[in-house]
Design a protein around this nucleic acid. Structure first.
Lengths: 144, 144
DNA sequence: GTTTATGCAAAACATTTGCAGCCTT
DNA sequence: AAGGCTGCAAATGTTTTGCATAAAC
């Protein structure tokens, strides 16, 4: 955890951004809820517990910054809000998601299942892939 | 075109919805711009050319209805708006997208490249897939 | 001291909803 | 007369922006 914060701090510094207390509190919330898919509002509520003076705008600005630095990925599951998902350290692809249409749970697939598909797309469509988004909608093991 | 409208009309009737002039005008805009990925506002502007009295709320309600009937798919590429994409007739999967990060173009892949991946997900994660969303972000052939 | 970041409030958007009136049967 | 459907305006919910203040370098 601390090491991970340290590395994020370096990443910010390398682009001449600072890890302010507000930003650190926000990052900690993301780290502590790595399995969830928090909206900006969710993050705001959780950060406020430790840092009550923080403003919602700061949270939005921090999440935008982290997205830009590819520390988090911004994703939208079709309900009106954006959600923010920490990237695995060293991962060069965004992980996949399983969204249950019964209970709303969102599970993650960390494994990259798209290697073969991407080779086909790159050669057949002559498209140079930089990133991807793959989400399955269906019924999770709990709801079956 | 006319036959396609006719089939959509039947599909609506089978669920006891009507194909009103407003709905028909909206469907026509979608058919005429099948290659694009129009937002509700885009659709509204285009429908207004032929049917100036239409209201934006009606367009939203029609798009929602068409989504429910799986005539269109609602998709979000990460800019703040939902886009609406006609499903290929008879297609049982939603097609894939290539979004160019240089020029913003969105190309479609009609072929289903996910058959193998879905088999793995269904058995390994015990997840019953009903639908999927796959988007690649990268550089299109035009921008290379 | 100049830049960078923050908090608040207001603004900007996208989307949804309430409701009175309008068709169609 | 009843139902579904529409247009308008208002309401809602999310995200962004302007600005004055505060913190960091």
């Amino acid at each position: 955890m601390e090491q991970r914060i340290e590395r994020i701090k370096k990443q910010l510094h390398s682009q001449s951004y600072k890890l302010t207390p507000q930003r650190e509190a926000t990052v900690r919330v993301l780290l502590e809820n790595e399995d969830d898919h928090l909206s900006a509002e969710d993050v705001y509520m959780l950060v406020k517990e430790k840092y009550p003076e923080i403003g919602l705008a700061t949270v939005y600005r921090t999440l935008e910054l982290l997205t830009e630095l590819k520390i988090v990925d911004k994703i939208n599951f079709g309900d009106g809000v954006s959600r923010y998902d920490l990237r695995q350290e060293g991962a060069n692809h965004f992980h996949h998601h399983l969204v249950c249409i019964e209970c709303g749970a969102v599970d993650e697939i960390q494994e990259d299942l798209l290697d073969d598909v991407e080779k086909v797309v790159e050669s057949r469509w002559n498209f140079q892939i930089k990133d991807h988004r793959l989400t399955f909608h269906g019924i999770c093991y709990r709801c079956q």
